[in-house]
Amino acid sequence: MKVTPTDMAGRHLGRTTRRRAAEAVVRTLVYAAGLLSIVILLAIAVFLFVEARRSMSEVSLGTMLTSTQWFPTGTPKIFGFLPLIAGSLMVTAVALVVFVPIGIGAAVYISEFSAGWFKEGMKTVIEFMAAVPSVVYGFLGVAVLIPWVKETFHLTSGMTALTGGLVLGIMSLPTVISISEDALHAVPDALRQGSLALGNTRWQTIYKVVVPSASSGIFAGVMLGLGRAIGETMAVLMLTGNAAVIPGSVFESVRTMTGTIAAEMGEVVFGGLHYSVLFSVGLVLFAITFAINLAADLVLERQRKRWRR
């Protein structure tokens, strides 16, 4: 007996072929869309590299990474990334000092000491802080923080690494708090009960049991906050004064990698050497944030596996 697929459902003759074709088309499209993220991420790396090639052959990556001076339009032109990297690191370090203790402290309070309605309310607050665009943080910094820093520390200018770092720290708080809070929340209640039953106070439970159990998640939150701080552009561009000198202290003006790209890309000749050098800066930035994010993601994945069991 010869059987064709349409025989299976005699009353739907002719529909099967069309339906199968449609299903195949959709499947192809969906798979293609699924792979798009890999394609884009690879394309970012590839095109940064392609555009940066000229600078690598004319200036060399070694020179760019080790030279301590940045004079892109001087004679002779000097393209040393060290002042920019130092600027980014110093701003990020200040941010870290702000967001790590405050972020983790707030996450602990929200997760361990507060009631349901308070958690909901804090979600809204965090949501709001994350929603405010970075240019607005920059503008608020210009209007409020720059004069404050100038007066408080008796400086000639309020545009310092400290100013940028403080604002970056505030901007990274939502990331750190929400991811740390998730990690603390994921710790099973049984662990807390067990510790409390042994006669530990809540705080002893928190720092002996809960925080260590959530440590990888908290670490990931800090890493992601760090990645956000290093990659942030507008706020630092508006607040740090952009002097391309290796800073001696946080009270000096700095120029970050992101700020350099944003400020100078408008003035370069497309395809020129300076243009290509800025792509090299972008490549360094991409590599740093990529490493940070990868680390955070691997740690988060490990944590997810841990509680699934």
């Binding site: 940064l48 552009t233 790209i261 994010n293």
Partner: peptide, 13 residues
């Protein structure tokens, strides 16, 4: 990782 790429790098891209 895409979520963590700095926005200025997207600009360059």
């Amino acid at each position: 990782n895409m979520a963590g790429v700095p926005s200025i790098v997207y600009g360059l891209f």
